[in-house]
Simulated scan of single mutants.
Amino acid sequence: MPKTSLAVRSDETPWTDAEAAAVREELVEDLARLKSELVDSARDLQDILAGGVDGAGNDQADVGSNSLERDAELSLAANQRELLIQTEKALARLGDGTYGVCELCGEAIGKLRLMAFPRATLCMDCKRREERR
């Protein structure tokens, strides 16, 4: 089976076309799912807002519940948007040949890491350093 030219670490076998296609397919499916979830979240948020958050006609418990529900929905939508952006970025990197290259050090991210988390943009060493900050 032919190999793609995606970056790999020296201790890894090159990406096969089938492996790269599987990652691309997973990302494309995630993109469609995330777009759908964002539409649903927007609709849910609209429903929450239409129910009123100003407290008119609601007791304090209702107002608090509506606020909590709105905040949770906003947080969920923000997370979905971030995943959507990461997914679009990963697909773009697949397309331009930079997929698998760490954005900080320029070394290979690692094939196994990308198969587990296809949106990864940092190798494990750079990711550890980033999380320590």
Rank of each mutant, 00 (worst) to 15 (best):
E25R: 14
E25G: 08
E25P: 00
E25I: 03
E25A: 15
V28C: 05
V28Y: 06
E29W: 01
E29C: 03
E29F: 01
L31V: 00
A32I: 04
A32Y: 04
R33D: 13
R33Y: 06
L34R: 03
L34H: 02
S36Q: 14
E37A: 03
V39D: 11
V39P: 01
D40V: 13
R43F: 14
D44Q: 14
D44A: 15
D44M: 07
D44I: 09
L45R: 11
Q46H: 14
D47M: 13
I48V: 14
I48S: 07
A50R: 13
A50S: 13
A50C: 05
G51M: 12
G52Y: 03
G52P: 02
V53F: 09
V53K: 10
A56V: 13
G57P: 06
N58H: 15
D59N: 14
D59A: 03
D59P: 06
D59E: 11
D59L: 05
Q60E: 12
Q60H: 13
A61H: 05
D62S: 12
D62P: 00
D62W: 13
D62A: 15
V63Y: 11
V63C: 03
G64P: 00
G64T: 04
S65D: 12
S67A: 07
L68H: 12
E69Q: 09
E69W: 05
R70N: 03
R70Q: 14
E73H: 10
E73M: 15
E73N: 12
L74Y: 07
L76T: 13
L76I: 03
A77G: 02
N79K: 03
Q80P: 01
Q80L: 10
L83I: 00
L84G: 02
L84N: 09
I85M: 11
A90L: 07
L91Y: 03
L91R: 01
L94F: 11
G95S: 04
G95P: 04
G97P: 08
T98E: 07
Y99V: 01
Y99F: 15
Y99S: 01
V101E: 10
L104R: 10
L104H: 11
G106C: 09
G106N: 06
E107T: 03
E107L: 08
I109P: 08
I109F: 11
L112S: 09
